[in-house]
Computed example of a mutant assay.
Amino acid sequence: MNKKLHLQELGLRDYKETWDLQEDLFQEILDTKIKNRREETSINTQNHFLFVEHPHVYTLGKNGDIKNLLLSEDQLKEKNASFYPINRGGDITYHGPGQIIGYPILDLENFFTDIHRYLRTLEEVIILTLKDYGLKPERSEGETGVWLDVGTPFARKICAMGVRASRWVTMHGFALNVNTDLGYFDHIVPCGIKDKAVTSLQVELGHKVNENELKTKIKANFEKLFEAKFV
């Protein structure tokens, strides 16, 4: 099993351009798996991890409700934001500058073949990372992602997650609000959940956060929990 992760730091990159890159890497892994089964070969499948930030964009998962986008086409243009219906799970979310996004494109047969465990492990990567900053992050039952103050009137989401998987190959991933302009969340019903707020690491700590330092912590926790190695 190949547990190496090819890391790409993409910086600020257009959503559609990054989605196309994900699809290409995803298909390469699938093609290798299909070739191995058809020809009874044993070529190692590759694993990839993309770190990226996007210009303002709203994305709607395949099971989402377009009514959760509260802006018209003209209003989207006024906000300098784009919109894409996409092929991950989950409802609507926002991506923008100051948000750290991680897209693991993995062959889970290199790790473990359990989508539920995969999502919980991704959540745990973020939970351990946020604990390094003195926060008390947790899961909210029945709601994917990472939250603060679950079970109180002040529950708020700090990290959204949504994935696609086929033949145990994953794409899409997590979006962690770090130094994010949270005002953009006012124009959607985030993840289709009406009664809970969103927050960012900057808001919780009261100061801007070093994003490179944060990504280093995420990588270390990812390597630990997935028993993987970034290359």
Rank of each mutant, 00 (worst) to 15 (best):
K224R: 10
E109H: 04
L71C: 14
P104V: 03
T93G: 00
F185E: 04
L60F: 04
D14W: 02
E17F: 10
S140W: 12
L225N: 01
L201N: 09
L70M: 14
D181T: 15
N2D: 09
E109S: 08
K208C: 06
E211I: 11
Y84K: 01
F111N: 09
I100E: 07
M171Q: 14
D31K: 14
N110W: 01
L10A: 06
I66E: 15
I66A: 15
T18E: 10
V57D: 01
K131E: 15
I115Y: 02
T41N: 11
R88E: 05
P85A: 12
N87M: 02
C159K: 06
L182C: 13
Q99D: 04
S166W: 05
D132H: 13
E109Y: 01
A165E: 11
F154L: 15
Y58A: 07
Y84S: 02
I66H: 14
E28P: 08
Y133Q: 13
R164A: 13
K77N: 10
E141K: 10
K208F: 05
E123A: 04
Y15A: 08
T113Q: 11
N44S: 14
Y103G: 01
K3V: 00
D107F: 04
L71W: 15
R120Q: 04
L50D: 08
Y133L: 12
Q46S: 13
M161Q: 09
L225V: 02
L130W: 11
G61M: 07
G134V: 07
W147S: 14
G89I: 07
E73L: 14
V163E: 11
H48C: 03
V198M: 06
V125C: 11
L119E: 05
T45W: 03
I126S: 09
H172F: 13
F83P: 05
K3C: 00
D132I: 06
S72K: 15
S140K: 15
I158L: 10
F174E: 08
C191D: 11
S82I: 00
L76F: 12
F154Y: 15
V57L: 01
E39R: 10
I115W: 02
K136R: 12
G162P: 05
W168D: 05
L7I: 09
A155S: 15
N87E: 12
E73D: 15
E211N: 02
T113H: 00
G145E: 11
R88I: 03
F185Q: 02
E213F: 13
H116M: 08
E78K: 14
R156F: 04
T59F: 02
I158S: 07
I115P: 02
K4P: 01
G89M: 08
E138S: 15
T45L: 03
M161V: 10
H172M: 14
K219I: 02
A155M: 15
N63A: 12
A228H: 11
L122G: 00
Q8H: 14
L25T: 12
K229G: 08
L128P: 06
G102N: 00
K3N: 05
V178N: 03
K16H: 13
N87A: 07
N44R: 12
Y94N: 03
K35H: 15
I43D: 15
D91N: 11
G102H: 00
P97Q: 01
D20G: 08
N221M: 03
L201P: 08
L130G: 11
I126Y: 12
V163C: 12
D24G: 05
R13L: 10
